[in-house]
Design a protein around this nucleic acid. Structure first.
Lengths: 110, 110
DNA sequence: CAGAATCCAGGCCGATACTG
DNA sequence: CAGTATCGGCCTGGATTCTG
């Protein structure tokens, strides 16, 4: 278990969710993977503001937290496919709600 | 509109929600305020790992984003009451889902 | 193609002390 | 009571370059 998550546990389950999912682009990546599995480069194009390092880090953490599955195809050129675990798929309702709320927030933009 | 939110808008509504709600303790504060209005000190006791500076910052941002209402009572000793706006109350389903998901995450702790 | 390596900046959050 | 002031650390995220 990662340290920030440990801390969050002391306070509230809500905070656990935030510290697991709150990283930059994480939930957007999950949203993409809910559609279908993606390759690394595809995800990069879906989230154009994230560079490769950030992308890799977030995906690794999602993998470590049991949300994302990383499958390596041993071939040249290399191919890696990212997909969701069951726990990852359980985020579907949450992602839908956040998408809706975020859109409404922008809509009602001050 | 705050800068990180502007950036998030370029990518996905989900990312907007994350950048508005993802700060430390923010959603936990909203969860408390969904129960009833709280005074500053009360919130501090509900979120014991946040110090006064952090608490103030998060509450100010939530206020700026139209989620929290800050009401000052001109009296001695001072009294400030925090409550939710309509937009804040619209977070109820989201908070409930995240609470549930966070609890399940801890339950299934690796 | 899918990253790893390196370096760097900013801000995000925290501890502590002080104030009207 | 409800903050502000000051200082600082560190972690997050980013730009760029390099590699099997």
């Amino acid at each position: 278990m990662r340290l920030p998550v440990e801390r969050a546990m002391q306070v509230c389950p809500v905070e656990v969710a935030v510290s697991v999912l709150g990283g930059a682009w994480k939930l957007t990546l999950v949203k993409c993977l809910l559609e279908r599995p993606h390759r690394f480069g595809e995800l990069g194009r879906r989230v154009p503001l994230a560079n490769t390092k950030t992308l890799t880090r977030q995906l690794r953490e999602l993998e470590q937290d049991g949300i994302v599955l990383r499958k390596v195809f041993e071939q040249v050129p290399p191919k890696v496919e990212y997909s969701l675990t069951e726990r990852g798929r359980s985020l579907a309702p949450l992602v839908a709600l956040m998408n809706e709320w975020g859109a409404a927030f922008v809509e009602t933009a001050q």
